[in-house]
Amino acid sequence: MHTHPHMTLDNDYVLYLTLAMIAATFIIRFAVIGMAGRFTMSERFKKTLRFVPVTVLPAIIAIEILGKGSNFAFNLENPKVLAAIVCTIISLRFGLIWVVIGGLASLILFQTYLDPIIAFIHHLTCC
């Protein structure tokens, strides 16, 4: 059996790693912004680029909410699914800050109280 050495994450390591990620992100973004004026893009390409955030963000969010592989849980016993439903309902009427506040509050409530409520309902229905 092969064992992997465990690396401890001390404060210096986390700080240097964070600074390296900041630098890498800045360099990549600066390079793209710096090159943007050097070539022309067709109108079709510009229109296509506008759909990238709209398609990527839901994919990232869906994986986080539903899980993946054997952890996939698309049911009303998943607190993240319930919080996403609350966020969707709030977004129909209120602004983004209320969606964030409502989503965080509902997620905390569902993660804290959903299991006892489900256990109580199962106890009532089975006996």
Results as ranks from 00 to 15, higher is better:
T3F: 09
T3C: 10
H4N: 14
P5G: 10
P5T: 10
T8P: 00
D10R: 01
D10H: 05
N11P: 05
D12C: 08
Y13Q: 09
Y16V: 10
T18H: 13
T18A: 11
L19S: 14
T25R: 12
T25L: 15
T25Y: 14
F26S: 07
I27E: 10
R29H: 13
F30Q: 12
F30T: 10
A31M: 15
G34Y: 14
M35L: 15
A36P: 08
A36Y: 06
A36V: 11
S42K: 12
F45E: 03
K46C: 09
T48P: 07
T48W: 06
R50F: 03
R50E: 02
F51L: 03
P53D: 02
V56F: 05
P58E: 00
A59W: 01
I60A: 03
I63E: 01
L66I: 03
L66F: 00
G67R: 00
G69L: 02
G69E: 01
S70L: 06
S70Q: 07
N71G: 02
A73P: 04
A73K: 04
N75S: 03
L76Q: 03
E77D: 03
N78P: 02
P79Q: 03
A83E: 03
I85M: 13
V86S: 11
V86W: 06
C87M: 12
C87W: 08
C87G: 14
C87D: 14
I89N: 01
I90M: 06
I90L: 11
F94V: 00
I97W: 02
W98A: 08
V99R: 01
V100D: 07
V100G: 07
I101H: 07
L104F: 14
S106D: 08
L107T: 11
L107W: 14
L109C: 05
L109A: 08
F110S: 04
Q111E: 04
D115E: 09
P116R: 09
P116T: 11
I121K: 15
H122P: 01
T125A: 13
